Simulated assay, not measured.
Amino acid sequence: MSPAPDERDRIRAAMDRILAGVPEHSNGALTIVGLAQEVQVPRNALTQRHLDLKNDSYDKVRARGAIPDSEKRLRRQVTKLKELRAADAKELAALRADVEALVGALHQAQMENRQLRQQLAVPDSKVRSLPTQLRPRVPGSRSS
């Protein structure tokens, strides 16, 4: 589908209306979607056919000292992602510390177990082996 002959003029006029704060067909958002709604054309008319006018729109918004709504949204998302990444890094550091502590505890238990087994092997040792407890049998289970 080819663009209407006056499409570029309508885009420029819609840009001026939005920047003046008097949109006729949109909510006045400083976005390409808002501009497309104001011009009453599909968004891809600005993102594919009239890329120069899309860039010009963003330049005009920035020149007025305003930040386009899409950029604001992206900045909020970046901030949120940085916060999530920091929280994940903190949790990961805690988990790594836990792993180190658990490995140390396991190593200590293995050493103590080895020492007790060595003492148990010595005749007349004061270490005695306790009888192992059998797990209670659950009715209907197949364990032996």
Score class of each variant (00 low, 15 high):
Y58D: 10
R75P: 04
Q77P: 02
K126P: 06
G21I: 06
A4S: 12
S141K: 06
R73D: 06
Q48R: 11
G104P: 03
R17H: 11
A66S: 15
S2D: 09
N113V: 03
E71T: 02
R10V: 01
L130S: 15
L95D: 01
H107Y: 08
N44T: 08
A20R: 10
K60N: 09
Q133Y: 11
G28P: 01
A105M: 08
A63Y: 04
V78N: 03
V61H: 05
D16M: 12
R142K: 12
I32E: 07
E100H: 09
L116T: 00
R117W: 00
A66T: 10
L51W: 02
Q115G: 06
D9W: 01
P123Y: 05
K126T: 04
Q40T: 06
N55Q: 13
I32K: 02
Q40M: 13
Q133V: 08
E100L: 07
P131H: 01
G21N: 07
A109H: 07
H107Q: 15
K54R: 13
I11T: 01
R75K: 14
A45Y: 10
R85G: 02
A13M: 11
H107A: 08
D88L: 14
R75T: 03
L92T: 04
L92E: 12
G34F: 01
V41T: 05
V61L: 10
V127T: 09
Q110F: 07
A29W: 04
Q115H: 11
D88A: 15
Q108Y: 09
V122Q: 13
K72N: 09
Q115C: 06
P68A: 07
I18N: 05
D98M: 02
R76W: 00
G65C: 04
S26Y: 00
R73T: 06
D52I: 05
L19E: 03
R64A: 14
K82D: 05
D69Q: 10
D124T: 06
P5T: 01
A101K: 15
R12T: 03
L19K: 09
M15G: 05
L51Y: 05
A97M: 05
Q119H: 04
K60T: 01
I11M: 10
K72Y: 05
V99G: 01
A66F: 09
S129N: 13
